[in-house]
């Protein structure tokens, strides 16, 4: 089963995704698959905050900023993937540059989805600030939106988190 969890910055989506996974995992082994690059103090602060949230909840943590399909075999049955927006950015602007990243990211997640019994994937709503951006940023926004659409189609359920409150967009009944 795959559930896609989306929401804006500081919307409580991580907390919600984690609680959802804990509720549905039913005692299965849990992996936290982190895609954030460790690139400075602010990233470390975020990582620390998320680590504190997960502390004592039985997660094994794996880090894979790109090519998450390569670690699918190392994951336990229930996987919390955080997050699609970082993964997409890393695939687009990393050592290897993939301009059309949407298909690539979706294919990587597909491998993980087939392997995991339960996959909760966290993504991000970055589409509504109405600002004009340079071409690179616009490409990113477009690719992330495409990833979200592809994953939502394959997901059994999709939920948008608004300040900690779940607003179900698909499959409300199954969770």
């Amino acid at each position: 089963m795959m559930i896609l969890v989306s929401g804006g910055a500081a919307s409580g989506k991580s907390e919600y995704a984690e609680a959802l996974l804990l509720r549905l995992a039913n005692g299965a082994g849990k992996t936290y698959l982190a895609t954030m690059k460790r690139d400075g103090e602010e990233a470390e602060r975020r990582i620390l905050r998320h680590r504190q949230l997960r502390e004592g909840k039985g997660f094994e943590t794996l880090e894979a900023p790109v090519n998450i399909d390569a670690v699918a075999g190392a994951c336990r049955e229930a996987v919390l993937l955080e997050c699609i927006s970082n993964l997409t950015a890393n695939e687009m602007f990393g050592e290897e540059v993939h301009t059309a990243a949407a298909e690539r990211v979706a294919a990587e997640v597909d491998v993980l989805q087939k392997k995991a019994k339960l996959l909760v994937a966290v993504t991000n709503e970055v589409f509504s600030d109405g600002l004009s951006y340079d071409e690179m940023t616009v490409n990113y926004i477009r690719e992330l939106a495409a990833v979200n659409r592809l994953l939502a189609k394959r997901a059994d359920a999709v939920v948008e988190v608004v300040y900690g409150i779940p607003v179900w967009r698909k499959g409300a009944g199954i969770c």
Binding site: G8, A9, A10, E125, V126, F127, L131, Y133, V162
Partner: peptide
């Protein structure tokens, strides 16, 4: 609701967005 955009370049704006959320 102010969090549904690209991460702002300025630290002050990032902090503001985080605080509102």
């Amino acid at each position: 609701e102010v969090g549904q955009g690209i991460v702002p370049l300025e630290q002050k704006e990032r902090d503001y967005r985080e605080a509102v959320g």
